[in-house]
């Protein structure tokens, strides 16, 4: 008989294999991403909200007027990730950033692959880097990259 262990420990994984329903508005946004286009939606005050949302964040009215926005934008704020973790899609240091696309009035969260933290500045111009095989998911935008210079 072997000696009794001091303390038992073992790795566990708990998984929830969700598929989330997108609804017609977010579904349209993702469908457009698959075609390498980005759409926002016009709010009741005329602002263009990106990504498209179902209801106006101020008036709570249902929204439905889609607006094409550009594939370049400006970094409004950012946070550098020095050590990407297992689940991060970019396997080297990168930035999480709020990026306001051309034609949009709100910024959206995505990643910026700038190579080095020194290349990041608030107000810098970035452009979309599309995934090789878009499938109708937010990761169809692989990330954003600096418009000039950068890596």
């Amino acid at each position: 008989m072997s000696a009794e262990p001091e303390m038992l420990s073992q790795p566990f994984e708990l998984g929830f294999t969700y598929t989330r329903s997108t609804g017609p508005i977010v579904g349209r946004f993702l469908t457009e991403l698959r075609d390498r286009k980005i759409v926002g939606i016009k709010g009741t005050d005329g602002r263009v909200i990106v990504p498209a949302v179902e209801y106006d964040p101020v008036s709570a009215e249902a929204l439905g007027e889609f607006i094409d926005v550009g594939q370049t934008g400006v970094v409004k704020t950012w946070c550098w990730v020095k050590e990407p973790r297992h689940h991060h899609l970019i396997k080297k240091p990168f930035a999480w950033a709020l990026i306001q696309l051309e034609g949009a009035d709100t910024p959206m969260l995505h990643m910026v692959d700038a190579g080095d933290e020194a290349n990041m500045t608030t107000g810098m111009a970035v452009k979309v880097r599309w995934a090789d095989e878009p499938r109708g998911h937010i990761t169809d935008i692989a990330c954003f990259e600096p418009v000039s210079g950068g890596e």
């Binding site: 790795p11 566990f12 998984g15 969700y18 598929t19 349209r28 109708g136």
Partner: peptide, 17 residues
């Protein structure tokens, strides 16, 4: 049209008894 997106969540941890 896209109507759903896969959004799995995996919680990986060590369980100490």
């Amino acid at each position: 049209m896209i109507t759903g997106m896969e959004a799995p969540i995996y919680l990986q941890y060590n369980f100490t008894a």
